[in-house]
């Protein structure tokens, strides 16, 4: 609900989908954008303060909780908190062992970080859509998009990092020749090199794209439905009550999506990196 503007459905939705952007505006210099127009005029030289804030806060929360567990970890009988953390660790360890055949000490911590972090970011979707933005408005912050995984910058930041690791390990394990050979010599043999490169290139580029867009799309759609349901509250009491029921139902269903998408993101990371480690 942008201040000053009349409350319309499309204004409400647009406001909810606008990040708090800080960047170099061609006219105003380094400043916080006051409208979607200003934000897009900033171009690439801008930060989404809300996405980064929540992403870092949730990531730090994850690190803090797990660090406490790591410090307290002993071979004695674990407490219930300890047990819970170790249960997650075991779950990740099982998945890595199941899908990743080479030996690399980076993969399991990477998978753990991605799973818990993405899960926490996704869970922000279950906070009723107006709570945090309205509170932010009270303390003078105009825009507040609280689910970092509905920001493609965040999901691409993760998937491109994984992609970079993929390329790095492909070249490290197979050599540059091996990596290029994989791109050009299959599936049709060396006389069809351009076709091979085209096909394999698409397959390669599709990995980080689908990796991040799958997460982004699911969460963005979920967030959108929450916003649409929230619109019902401003109509009348019957539709408002219906909205309450719908929101609850969608939240229950969304818990599944939230968990599933975090899990899929982690598993795909493991699988992609496993492919990078496969020698032919």
């Amino acid at each position: 609900m942008a201040s000053g503007e009349p409350l319309t459905a499309s204004g409400y939705i647009k406001h909810h989908l606008q990040n708090l952007t800080f960047g170099n505006h061609p006219e105003n210099g380094w400043s916080i954008a006051h409208s979607a127009q200003e934000a897009s005029e900033m171009g690439f030289i801008a930060f989404h303060l809300d996405s980064l804030f929540w992403s870092i806060v949730l990531g730090a929360l994850f690190l803090l909780v797990f660090r406490i567990a790591a410090v307290r970890a002993t071979s004695d009988t674990p407490g219930s908190f300890q047990n819970f953390i170790e249960w997650i660790i075991d779950f990740i360890e099982d998945n890595v062992r199941g899908s990743f055949s080479a030996k690399n000490d980076l993969i399991a911590p990477l998978a753990l970080t991605l799973f818990v972090w993405v899960l926490l970011m996704n869970l922000m979707d279950l906070v009723p859509v107006d709570w945090i933005p309205e509170f932010a408005k009270l303390i003078g912050v105009e825009y507040m998009k609280v689910v970092p995984t509905t920001d493609p910058n965040i999901t691409f930041g993760l998937s491109l990092s994984v992609f970079a690791l993929m390329i790095y390990y492909s070249i490290k394990i197979k050599g540059l020749g091996g990596f290029l050979g994989e791109l050009t010599l299959q599936p049709f043999g060396k006389y069809m090199m351009p076709v091979n490169l085209f096909l394999e290139g698409i397959a390669l580029i599709a990995k980080p794209l689908s990796h991040s867009l799958r997460l982004f799309g699911n969460l963005y759609a979920g967030e959108m439905i929450f916003i649409l349901i929230a619109l019902l509250y401003s109509t009348n009491i019957v539709l408002g009550a219906l909205g309450g029921v719908l929101q609850w139902a969608w939240a229950v269903f969304h818990v599944l999506i939230v968990l599933l998408q975090a899990f899929i993101f982690m598993v795909l990371t493991i699988v992609y990196l496993d492919m990078a480690h496969q020698k032919h």
Binding site: A46, H48, S55, L106, L110, L112, G157
Partner: peptide, 27 residues
């Protein structure tokens, strides 16, 4: 939905977090 420096910020954050996890949590 603009792609901007947030991408780089998130990447750096990600690297630091994974490094921390790998160094101080997992082992």
């Amino acid at each position: 939905m603009n792609i901007n420096l947030t991408l780089i910020g998130q990447t750096i954050t990600f690297i630091i977090f994974v490094w921390f996890c790998m160094k101080f949590i997992w082992p």
